[in-house]
Amino acid sequence: MSVAEAQAAELSLERPSGLWRDAFDRFRRNPAALVGVGLLLVLIIAAVFAAQLAPHEPNQQVGPLSTNPAGPGGGFTLGLDEQGRDVLSRLLFGARLSLLVGVVSVAIGLSIGLVFGAVAGYIGGWVDTAIMRVMDLLLSVPSLLMAIGLVTLLGRGMVQIMFAVGVTTVPIFARLLRGSILGQREADYVLAARSVGVPGRRLLLGHIIPNSIAPVIVQATLTMATAIIEVAALSFLGLGPGDPSLPEWGKMMADNANRLESAAHLVLLPGFAIVISTMGLNLIGDGLREAIDPKLRS
């Protein structure tokens, strides 16, 4: 095709030095993605150095108990809550929780999802049909509802919650990897590997999956944002971690929902923290998608 030829002429000159490297170059030039990286860095720094950055312990009472606690400014940068605890410190420690929740639940969902997706996509046949019907079933239940059900069933520990949220993401990854594998399975280079006698497992792990994994990485970033929101939502609904002293952002919002008028900062600040971290992850995810997608396999 002529237009494609013109573009190919264009592409051939952009000699990339490696597929990942090239994707990285494109990512680096995407301002939105860089903003995302910035936001995520803020979250990571907050989480890692919470102990050093926070002026106080998250559960330490540093001010008076009050139904009308002090707002930002004054002696405490972001004000106090009704139990006299420093909001900034609680937010910083909350970042730890959120990041942990995001990473762990996605790791759980990803590992289970990848196994199912790889098996379904590679083996095919009735195995594929069986796995994918179950995944469809899981997808048809709203994920928050499913998480609520699982938490009710398993109990309200932090681990249980991460597991519950992780499970809701399994079908997303399973589907994505399966689709991606199906697209690669018939590719000529796979056929070429088969024709030199590469055995099945090596074919899957050494050839097919490395070429199918890019969209999954993108999705993992985006899902991490969803997981953070979901855990916050669970907490907000009163299904959060049983330990009331944990500075979970969703829980902080829920605890103070009725004080929106008198002490808006107690609701808005945790909400803002959630927005920042999920937006950061979403921007990175979109950036990655754009960086990896452009038709490299022409």
Partner: peptide
Amino acid sequence: ESGCGKSVSSL
């Protein structure tokens, strides 16, 4: 041959 500019010129 491909890339010689024949299509580009018509576009």
